[in-house]
Amino acid sequence: MLELYLKTEIDEYNKILKENKGSLNEKLKFVFYYHVGKDYNKEKNIFINKSNQTIDYREYYLFLIDIYHQHPEIREYFHNINKEMLNFYKELVNESIKKQEVRSDIDPNEVALYIFTIFKGFIEIWTGFPDIPFRYNYKY
């Protein structure tokens, strides 16, 4: 189930983001919203299941955390997904350096880890504190 669903989601996510011709800022904004299941251009849910119901992303992330903790035999799968995401952010940073959107003297590994940490931290806070609403009016 994890391989089918998560791998498909990650592949789709990477495809969408690679097709995005925006700046690094625009791509990161897309990533931020995507991680909570929103289309930042239309501020609506982007994932709807086969029953035409919106996916509750808080429940989704809590479910994944539960799987991780309850099934140590598949933790390596989660670790590999995280490595893929970290490498993807590194590619975004390298692309932005080539476009001269980002200084060339920065370490792409460090920036990728920083981006990854910000998004993982946001998701952790967002899922762990349901009283904190997701606001659409964040300014970047």
Rank of each mutant, 00 (worst) to 15 (best):
I118S: 01
E95W: 04
K29I: 07
I10P: 00
P133S: 08
G121Q: 06
I115K: 03
E91I: 02
L17W: 04
L2C: 09
L24Q: 14
G121H: 06
V111M: 14
F78H: 05
P72S: 07
E95P: 02
I46T: 11
L6Q: 13
K50S: 12
E3Q: 09
N14I: 11
E9N: 11
D66C: 07
Y77V: 08
I106S: 11
I10Y: 11
K50R: 13
F30D: 12
E124K: 14
F32A: 05
L28H: 05
I123P: 01
K15P: 00
L86E: 12
I118A: 03
K90L: 02
V36H: 01
E12T: 14
Y136I: 05
E3Y: 07
I67P: 02
L17Y: 03
E43G: 01
G37D: 03
G22K: 06
F88Y: 13
D11W: 00
P133C: 00
N94S: 11
E73L: 05
T54E: 15
T8V: 03
L92F: 06
Y34T: 00
L113K: 15
K29L: 12
L64K: 07
N25H: 12
Y13I: 01
I118V: 13
K44T: 15
I10V: 13
I65Q: 14
F134C: 02
K99T: 07
E73G: 01
S51F: 10
I10N: 03
E26K: 14
Q100C: 07
I16C: 06
L92G: 07
D66S: 15
K38A: 03
I48H: 11
Y68T: 04
L28P: 06
E12I: 09
Y77H: 10
V102S: 12
F122S: 04
Y136G: 07
R135L: 11
N49F: 08
I55Y: 05
V102K: 11
H69S: 10
F63I: 02
S96N: 10
Y77K: 08
F88D: 00
L6F: 05
K44H: 03
D107S: 15
L17K: 07
N109M: 04
H79K: 14
K99P: 03
N137A: 04
R58D: 10
E84D: 14
L4N: 08
V111Y: 09
H79Q: 10
N20Q: 12
T8P: 00
N137S: 12
E84R: 14
Y89V: 03
F32W: 13
K90V: 01
N87C: 02
F88G: 01
K83P: 00
I16N: 09
H69W: 07
L113R: 15
L62R: 15
M1C: 02
Y77I: 08
H35V: 04
E110M: 15
E95M: 12
Q53Y: 02
K38Y: 12
E95H: 09
I81P: 00
L28F: 05
Y5I: 14
Y34E: 02
I67Y: 07
T127W: 02
Y77D: 15
E73H: 04
V31A: 07
T54N: 13
Q53A: 08
S104A: 14
D39N: 15
P108N: 06
P108W: 10
T117R: 14
V93R: 09
